[in-house]
């Protein structure tokens, strides 16, 4: 398969960026999107040109590092996957593909398609945990949890922290990300004790870091590679209101 690629190139956060067009040919349809970019980079290295920088690591959809905005959609035109799981068979021969970085104020650009998502770590540091030290905890089966609750907590816990929700949101809101962690811990008895403080601190950190507000467009749910439900945001609101009145 042959493709025309329009890729965002930007030297660093201060530099001015622009789209650069590349041609690539003889790509197998079984090739993954990132493997297609690997081949482009091999060509660029051959010409002593600068390879395109993009984040990636596990290449099996779980580490959350890959983060490309492809033809106007985070992680490309397929449901429930990350960029590394997108395969070229999803495109048509001869397609033009536009590739951009995540664009959000809270995710400053590092180079080309690589952005800094440390803001997510900072939100978790505000309370995305149960405050237990190592050791001195009760037996695992001493805390029975209904399968239903546990499964719902797991649904939320699957978030990989990639930032697609922020990238796709017109407000660059991090509500889906924050709500996934708040929900996981709110659903479990272990997380209940600190629920009030957790939700307040995490939400206020999110605001402070420059993420926008939620206006319920649902784009985040539509694009989340782990299909985290927007109902988690409803639970976040409930937790937040409860914290303000109690």
């Amino acid at each position: 398969m042959d493709f025309t690629l329009k890729i965002w190139r930007q030297e660093n956060a201060q530099a001015k960026g622009k789209f650069v067009t590349y041609k690539i040919s003889k790509i197998s349809e079984d090739c993954s999107f990132l493997e297609m970019l690997d081949q482009l980079n091999e060509q660029l290295v051959d010409k002593f040109d600068h390879p395109v920088c993009f984040d990636h690591d596990c290449r099996e959809g779980i580490c959350g590092m890959c983060s490309l905005y492809i033809n106007g959609r985070p992680h490309g035109n397929d449901q429930g996957i990350t960029t590394c799981q997108l395969h070229m068979r999803k495109f048509k021969d001869g397609d033009t593909i536009v590739i951009e970085p995540w664009r959000a104020k809270a995710f400053p650009l590092i180079k080309d398609l690589v952005v800094d998502r440390v803001a997510f770590d900072k939100i978790i540091q505000e309370g995305g945990y149960v405050s237990v030290n190592t050791g001195g905890v009760p037996d695992g089966n001493a805390i029975p949890i209904s399968k239903e609750k546990s499964d719902l907590a797991m649904d939320a816990a699957q978030c990989i922290g990639c930032g697609a929700c922020v990238a796709t949101c017109k407000n660059a809101s991090a509500m889906l990300f924050v709500s996934a962690k708040v929900s996981q811990l709110a659903l479990l008895p272990q997380g209940k004790l600190e629920a009030k403080k957790r939700v307040e601190n995490m939400v206020s950190k999110m605001d402070e870091l420059g993420f926008g507000s939620c206006t319920n467009t649902g784009a985040c749910e539509a694009e989340c590679p782990k299909e985290i439900k927007i109902s988690n945001i409803a639970r976040l609101f409930r937790e937040y209101y409860v914290s303000t009145v109690s």
């Binding site: 945990y129 149960v130 905890v137 695992g140 805390i143 546990s150 816990a157 996981q184």
Partner: peptide
Amino acid sequence: DQCVAQGVPFAREYGG
């Protein structure tokens, strides 16, 4: 025990 206390959502039986 440690992971359960942290809120790791291990798979559970219907009895919890």
